[in-house]
Design a binder for these strands. Structure first.
Lengths: 146, 146
DNA sequence: TTTCCTGCAAAATGTTTGCAAGGCA
DNA sequence: TGCCTTGCAAACATTTTGCAGGAAA
């Protein structure tokens, strides 16, 4: 399957979730998902605005990303500085990342230690658990560029 | 050692770091550290403003918390919603937490899995690593209150 | 008395809300 | 057609900056 085909599949899956929720697949939504799908890294609201050439109002992007998040189409990455990035959800419902502080390129970390953490929290009486795990560093490319 | 004595020790340690950095131990700094020291949970800027009865301008609180963070006197906790809380640094240079979404009460998690994560990131060529691990849930007290 | 710190005012960011017009199903 | 979405304007919340007066060492 080519990259383009993979992208089409991701968009189709997203569309299914949107319409099944009784919402509509608009031009803005399709294009925002395309941009996320083609990106090599998670994107901020501002990134999305720029990559869509300012075609959509910031408000539209905020609102749609919130919809995507609710529907599980995107997941949120919180950076050390409190800023948020969005990326299309992969095979798993959530994942963890190594994020380059410099270029924001991101790799998914396949193994998730969340289970152990949540078991511990559970043993302490906590319920309704979720967790965040992110690693920040400088990636090889940025490192070599000094 | 009484709680009050422990608090005095923490303040003394903080004062040492501040003066050794060529900075001054002012009334605002002493009181902000006292408030953090007496708090049963990490505090936001707004919390600190309220607990000091608005005695200090928000700007002063922002600036001092940033100083504290640089000196390692406080550590930052990033909530799921992107908001930040501060707590006095404990015995270790950093720690992880179970945070109650409702009352924001926080427990430190003693075991840190960061080593494994950072080794993995390191093997992928990343340098200058740091990581965040937080667990969010509903604490037993909040749960029982419905 | 030197240098740092604080408060005030204002600006810069980032995000949300209300409403009328436009677009998808 | 009917309801969902969008854009615009404005409100809001949060954080930062500049500067003059006040305070620690």
């Amino acid at each position: 399957m080519s990259l383009k085909e993979k992208e089409d599949v991701r968009i189709a899956i997203s569309e299914k979730r949107i319409t099944e929720a009784g919402l509509r697949m608009t031009g803005a939504r399709r294009q925002l998902i395309e941009i996320l799908s083609e990106s090599e890294r998670p994107l901020s609201i501002e990134d999305l605005s720029q990559r869509s050439q300012g075609k959509f109002d910031l408000v539209t992007i905020y609102r749609n990303l919130e919809v995507f998040r609710e529907l599980g189409i995107v997941e949120v990455i919180l950076l050390e500085n409190g800023k948020t990035l969005f990326e299309l959800t992969g095979e798993h419902d959530h994942s963890h990342h190594i994020v380059c502080r410099n270029c924001l390129k991101t790799e998914r970390i396949d193994f998730c230690m969340g289970g152990e953490l949540e078991r511990y929290a559970s043993s302490r009486g906590y319920s309704n658990l979720s967790h965040t795990i992110e690693v920040f560093g400088e990636c090889p490319d940025c490192e070599s560029k000094g």
